[in-house]
C-alpha cells in the first residue's frame, strides 16, 4: 500500500488536522468517482477506480490514531508488530488487568453508571496518550532511534486502550438489549 499521507497529499504528522484530511478525501473521491469517469477509456476508468480505493483506505488509516502512528513509524523505518515492540511494563499490565476486571464487575451488576465512569476515566487516559504521541512524533522529526524509544510503548498502550473500549461497547450493547 502506498503511504496514506502521500496518497492524500498531507503533511505526515501525528497531530493531523482531521477535518482537512477528511475534506481532502472527499474532494479526491469525488474526482475519482466512476460516474465522473463514465465517458473515459476503460484503462483510465480502471486507474481511477484503483486510485479511489487507495484514497478510501488512506483515509481509513489516517483517521485511526493507531494506524496513523503505525504509518508514521513505517515511514521512519521503525518496525512495529509482534516481536518488534518492547514488552509492556508491569505497571501497564496491572492497570489494564484491573481496568478490565472492573468492566467485568460493572457488566455482571448491569451497572451503566459505573461503566460510564470507567469509560470516562479511560477517555482521559487516551487523550493524554494522544497528546504525548503527537509531541513525540513532532520532536523526533523522523529520527528512527528516538521514535522507537518514545513512541512504541505509547502505541502499545493505545492498543490496550482500544481493547478496553471495544469491551465497553460490547457491554453497552448488552445492557441496552
Amino acid at each position: 500500500m502506498q503511504d496514506p499521507f502521500d496518497t492524500l497529499g498531507l503533511e505526515p504528522r501525528f497531530a493531523l488536522d482531521l477535518a482537512q484530511a477528511e475534506e481532502r478525501h472527499r474532494t479526491l473521491s469525488r474526482t475519482l468517482h466512476p460516474d465522473r469517469n463514465a465517458g473515459r477509456p476503460p484503462a483510465e476508468r480502471r486507474l481511477a477506480l484503483g486510485r479511489a480505493i487507495e484514497v478510501n483506505s488512506a483515509w481509513r488509516a489516517l483517521r485511526d490514531p493507531i494506524a496513523r502512528a503505525e504509518c508514521l513509524l513505517a515511514r521512519a523505518g521503525v518496525l512495529v508488530g509482534e516481536g518488534n515492540e518492547p514488552r509492556p511494563p508491569a505497571s501497564l499490565l496491572m492497570e489494564m488487568m484491573e481496568a478490565r476486571e472492573a468492566l467485568t464487575v460493572a457488566r455482571s451488576h448491569r451497572d451503566a453508571i459505573a461503566l460510564e465512569k470507567l469509560a470516562s476515566a479511560m477517555r482521559t487516559r487516551e487523550s493524554a496518550l494522544l497528546e504525548g504521541l503527537a509531541r513525540a512524533f513532532d520532536e523526533a522529526a523522523g529520527d528512527r532511534v528516538i521514535l522507537a524509544q518514545r513512541a512504541l510503548e505509547d502505541l502499545g498502550t493505545l492498543r490496550y486502550v482500544r481493547r478496553f473500549f471495544a469491551e465497553v461497547e460490547a457491554i453497552e450493547e448488552e445492557l441496552a438489549s
Binding site: 512495529v80 515492540e85 492498543r159
Partner: peptide, 8 residues
C-alpha cells in the same frame, strides 16, 4: 503477569 502489546 504478561501481555502482548501488538494485540492488546
Amino acid at each position: 503477569l504478561v501481555g502482548a502489546p501488538a494485540c492488546g
